[in-house]
Write a protein that binds this DNA or RNA. Structure first.
Lengths: 204, 204
DNA sequence: CTGAAAACTGCATGCTCTGCAAAATTTCAC
DNA sequence: GTGAAATTTTGCAGAGCATGCAGTTTTCAG
């Protein structure tokens, strides 16, 4: 907040945000990011096409900028938590804390979710970012627990946890049912803690 | 084998396989798929560049052709199994059965794994195919159990199972330790069945 | 053998993304 | 303020990807 961010850096951040916002707006307006070109985005944000590509390698990356920021913050938080918590708890609490202050615009998240869902290129981009998240998180966990990044167990734990966050969030987004996102995430984690072999209800 | 496949279809299949193989060979030879062009692949397989793009939308898809075939077969198997097994068991057994006949060239899998690991574009492509697999599997499960594709529980189960397959396979590939891949997969599933909160060894 | 269906090919096109070097802008020291 | 240095923006050129289209060649069935 009160950080001594120079004017230069603030302008850069503003430009980046503007480009991301322009991408989002155009993608919605034109019914899919496939119908939007880098030229249009740049024009909409008032910079040259070349500058757009200085900030983002692709329009998909521009659209998912916020998502990327969120996961980065989650990683920072996780780095702290693993010092004092078991991995599983650390991830769960980090994810919950991330969404506790309701600074997120649900309707916007829904729009983004739909855009992603309907575009193969966006699914790929997001999945790719997820894998990067996974890879970095594995490093953090290995560091904190003194295990190797190649060990099976931490990878299983992390993978399940990330799937849980993503799945639960999507499910909640489709139908909030009155509860909050943190509550939904907590429930998802609880399901996995219980062991997933047996369904909770049906006897199939 | 003795299927009444017309000559035409066999030639098509051969061309597709040749293109995929050429992609793999060139990617290894040139140290990354980023250093290979569609032109080179087509030339290596003896067809025009345009024809290459008739078979595959991208070189990444060409390289992952086998992977795609394998997951398709897994889905077919899963479709049968969910009729008589709980979802979790069905996925586990399908994955295990898939790899039981050791028709897979481990060294080749390792090479492919490394190629993927080092290329963002391949990570994205594979992740995208994984999401497609997930989406289709969800449909199968929902059909078989009479649940909705939007329900949380089957999504969590499926997600965890797929992560388990992928993670375990990668881990095993890095270090087989004498046991077979089916054994490794079974172990991964067993870990998750136990519930993942508590590590098996360390008391962290 | 022949006509119909399917596959292969070249060409043109539009878009993506990167490198490079010149021009414009911001920062900083004085 | 002013000028030099650092940084950012920009245009241009170029390689490559991916798709539509139309003509040619190959394959298949009867």
């Amino acid at each position: 907040m009160t950080a001594p961010t120079g004017l230069r850096e603030r302008k850069k951040a503003a430009t980046k945000a503007a480009l991301s916002a322009a991408t989002f707006r155009l993608a919605i307006a034109k019914n899919g990011i496939g119908n939007v070109t880098a030229d249009e985005i740049a024009a909409d944000a008032g910079v040259s096409t070349r500058t757009f590509h200085n900030y983002f390698p692709s329009k998909e990356a521009a659209l998912l900028y916020d998502f990327n920021e969120t996961t980065s913050a989650l990683l920072d938080d996780l780095r702290d938590r693993v010092k004092s918590q078991p991995v599983w708890d650390a991830i769960r609490d980090a994810a919950i804390a991330m969404h506790f202050d309701e600074k997120f615009d649900i309707e916007m998240m829904r729009c983004r979710e739909q855009l992603i869902h309907e575009s193969p290129s966006l699914i790929k981009e997001q999945s790719g970012q997820f894998m990067a998240l996974f890879k970095e998180a594995i490093g953090i966990v290995a560091d904190a627990t003194g295990t190797s990044v190649d060990d099976l167990y931490p990878r299983l734990v992390l993978g399940s946890a990330l799937v849980c966050i993503k799945t639960t969030t999507e499910h909640w987004l489709a139908d909030p049912e009155g509860r909050s996102l943190p509550e939904a995430i907590a429930e998802g984690f609880a399901v996995l803690e219980r062991g997933i072999t047996r369904p909770p209800v049906q006897g199939n």
